[in-house]
């Protein structure tokens, strides 16, 4: 691949944003998409095909008909597009309110070793909405921003603490957001991979089982062969439970 090395092993924040923009979000449309049909029905029938147009979303499903002020769910990128043309209001998700964030903050402070159940795209969605849909918030944005910043910092501290327990086989990342995982990925993957190799190199089973398999093949037979095979496979593909 001709991608730079950094992009081969992780996502750039822009790519993460792109992924997240495919999530659904609720909006209040300010337009009605099927109104045109009524108009065209009364005016001229030749335009029938044109009137039945459907907006398509990325996953190939037709977009639901939008009716003014009737909440509907669309992908985030479409919502932002409509928002830019002031054709909709975005309904701010429940957790992205002063109350919701306050609850999460309290949870973070109470549980030193756990992360609060924020949605996986919380950091990205909040940043996007702050920037592009600032007028749809009911709470003052700077307070929300402060709380998001607090949450981010407190969680980052926990992550740094948690790295003490890095090992060669597994890592638990419950409730961490995609951006948080993304920025940690290069570090954790390289270190864990080296740990795995170092750990495997200290294990005697690989070479010995190999020798056993060759040396005792004729007098013991299938049993050891199978055994050495499983040993081989288990040592060459170690339990790598990274949820990255």
């Amino acid at each position: 691949m001709s991608l730079p090395a950094l992009l081969q092993e992780t996502f750039s924040p822009e790519e993460v944003q792109f992924i997240v923009e495919n999530q659904k979000i609720k909006i209040f449309p300010r337009i009605t998409t099927n109104k045109r049909r009524n108009l065209s029905d009364s005016n001229n029938e030749g335009n029938d095909d044109m009137s039945r147009w459907k907006m398509l979303t990325m996953d190939g499903r037709a977009l639901e008909t939008m009716i003014v002020m009737k909440s509907t769910e669309v992908t985030l990128w479409l919502a932002l597009l409509l928002k830019q043309q002031s054709k909709c209001n975005i309904i701010i998700p429940e957790w992205l309110t002063v109350r919701g964030l306050e609850l999460m903050l309290q949870y973070e402070k109470r549980n030193v070793d756990r992360f609060s159940a924020l949605p996986w795209d919380w950091l990205v969605v909040s940043e996007i909405l702050f920037k592009q849909a600032a007028d749809d918030f009911n709470d003052p944005i700077h307070e929300l921003r402060n709380r998001i910043q607090d949450l981010k910092e407190i969680r980052q501290m926990k992550v740094l603490q948690g790295l003490k327990y890095l090992n060669e086989s597994h890592l638990q990342l419950d409730n961490l957001g995609i951006l948080e995982i993304n920025e940690l990925r290069p570090f954790i993957v390289t270190v864990m991979d080296k740990l795995r190799l170092i750990h495997a190199s200290g294990q005697p089973d690989e070479e010995e089982s190999d020798e056993y398999g060759e040396g005792n093949a004729d007098d013991v037979g299938m049993g050891t062969m199978l055994n050495s095979d499983t040993n081989m496979s288990s040592s060459s593909v170690p339990p790598n439970g990274t949820m990255l």
Binding site: L163, L166, F187, V191, K194, L197, I198, H199, S201, P204
Partner: peptide, 28 residues
């Protein structure tokens, strides 16, 4: 890595992985 692989030196590999974990913290 090579040395441990050659001699299956479990003791050394444990020391080295301990070293890496500790230092990785600081590096991070």
């Amino acid at each position: 890595l090579k040395w441990c692989g050659l001699y299956s030196d479990k003791n050394l590999s444990e020391i080295v992985s301990h070293l890496l974990i500790q230092r990785a913290q600081e590096i991070n």
